[in-house]
Design a protein around this nucleic acid. Structure first.
Lengths: 343, 343
DNA sequence: CTGAAAGCGCTAACAC
DNA sequence: GTGTTAGCGCTTTCAG
């Protein structure tokens, strides 16, 4: 229970000044010291079980070696891999991460942003879903390094890393089209989340490329990315447009909900209707019939964002690209059936 | 980009001494100041956008208002709810959590424990799976508040929170027995993880209570809590003891693997064989035929551990119970079939 | 009731 | 090469 030893203790022990001890223990400056004294100091440090006090370090250097990671909700299975990706680059560099869950609550988000700043984080990775949040913009404007993940902030020059939502939607639309589907409805995500909006826009754009007129498009928007909303919207789509042969969903959870509704109401997937997702969350291969979806590299996304943030922290702002778009890929399972085309 | 304001800035602004500002901003000591000056100071603080510097606070008070949370792997779906449970009590009290993933690597765990101590965490919640790890014991012995989750440490008087593994196994064994099963094999977890061992012991104990002799027991031990091992062990069990009618698995992932193997090899669950799990992880209800399992309240476990840790940090060590056992419950789905008993 | 001064543990400019 | 000194931003005696 005895107090942790400090530089002062080592200094007393070895009969040198604290600053000498400090230098001896710093690999950078060790060189400017006598070999002999360095050895003596290091031995004493080992003997006493010295561990540097990072709080004192932080106060002095104005650098906490800590970053904040804001995510909506860690229990949402797509976030843990992102967190590990971030950690995979941060931890070896000596950074710790403080992870906070915003629950999509912008008031909570504001408070948490303040807390992180009080704690002197060196930067923030903001895995946001909200399309606009002034708090983080303000923090960035004050000079705090920030990079956003999964979303771009229009108001400021904040570097962002996103997945190629457009390409993903195109892949999956192509896939459906290749399988003969012409009546493709979109189960869209909430408009106020960037992924929801982007995917919806991509859907419209691809549909247009295929020559489908905008007003012929069946789109039903979920208010949250949850199974229950998937069910509700699937019901809506089926009743509004019974001739629909495929539902392209904005994410996996919506797709799962839609699949459940369809199965319970005489439209089993894939026999009666084809359904696709987005994200490729874990365990999808265990859920029949196997959702065809767009695979996102969550771990890489986290690691990439972390690397950018470190660059910014190190002051290499100039070299940090404003936009980083990560590739996505198609993951085919069994939720899409090949059907006869009309001609 | 201008530097964050400090107490000194407010002092200059208001023409009082920093210590007065410090007092004015501390709700505890505000009372000993003139109402007038307090108001003036608070206004100045607001105007300047003052935010206390927690690093300086920490250094002075020798209290970081930070706790370490060690978990094996956040991508394992049972941990996020625990983390949120911890956060639900820590955050309102002003504590931040640094979450680290040990990956079950005891070397890594040692390094991380040191890192957390360097950062001056006020305590550690150790959601461990390893049955013995000297590092955390050593940290606790040095006076650092520690509580373990999901496991008890024999070597030291460290408070722990565990689930009632014994009761869980008993419930599920009873359930199988009630459904006519007499040939029940155990797909055990790794012996070096406390959950693995505890559940195995409980299984043996219950079997004994039912009058099954120990040497008649079919037990196959997985080397990791993973689907692949579930498959391997299921194969082993089926070939060693073809008359088995039920496999009681040490956790859900093993059960899922076992189910997969059985399905692919002419023993579909539940028709040919009944299978049960443990944990009730998310999305289980979407995976056919629906795994019957033991439900653990992960969020509560995290919250409980956090409350204990806070008590310890606050110096109420005396009042902290050494052992806290959380109740579990049976979650019935469709993986257990009723069969005819022999008599 | 408020000011002065010390100090938490560390680093860094400046001496010698 | 090493010691001296100052100070990061805050709290907390101790005076007055």
């Amino acid at each position: 229970m005895s107090r942790r030893p400090t530089l002062k203790d080592i200094a007393r022990e070895t009969g040198v000044h604290v600053s000498t001890v400090s230098r001896a223990l710093d690999p950078q400056k060790r060189s400017s010291l006598t070999e002999e004294i360095v050895v003596k100091i290091r031995q004493a440090a080992d003997r006493l079980g010295y561990r540097p006090n990072r709080i004192a370090f932080s106060l002095r250097k104005q650098k906490s070696m800590t970053v904040g990671v804001m995510i909506p909700d860690i229990t949402n299975m797509i976030f843990p891999p992102i967190v590990r990706g971030i950690e995979s680059v941060m931890e070896p560099l000596g950074y710790a991460s403080i992870i906070v869950n915003t629950d999509g609550d912008s008031d909570r988000e504001r408070r948490l942003t303040e807390t992180l700043q009080e704690r002197g984080v060196d930067g923030i990775i903001h895995t946001a879903v909200l399309r606009s949040d002034p708090n983080i913009v303000e923090a960035a404007r004050q000079g705090l390094p920030v990079v956003t993940l999964n979303r771009k902030v229009e108001e400021a020059e904040i570097p962002y890393v996103i997945n190629d939502e457009e390409a993903g939607i195109r892949m999956i639309f192509d896939h459906l089209h290749d399988h003969g589907h012409r009546r493709i409805a979109h189960l869209a995500g909430p408009r106020d989340l960037s992924t929801g909006l982007l995917r919806r826009e991509a859907f419209c754009s691809v549909a247009r490329d295929y020559g489908l007129s905008a007003d012929a498009l069946v789109i039903e928007e979920a208010s949250r990315f949850e199974e229950e909303e998937g069910r509700r919207c699937a019901k809506e789509i089926l009743s509004r447009s019974p001739e629909t042969t495929a539902i392209l969903c904005a994410n996996d959870r919506l797709a799962l909900g839609a699949m459940d509704y369809c199965a319970r109401n005489g439209h089993p997937c894939p026999d009666k209707i084809s359904i696709t997702g987005f994200n490729d969350m874990p365990f999808l291969d265990l859920i029949p019939p196997g959702l065809t979806t767009v695979r996102i590299e969550q771990f890489d996304a986290g690691a990439t964002a972390a690397r950018l943030l470190v660059q910014m922290i190190d002051g290499c702002d100039g070299k940090v690209p404003r936009e980083t778009v990560l590739p996505v890929s198609l993951k085919c399972r069994n939720s899409v059936l090949r059907i006869e085309t009309d001609h």
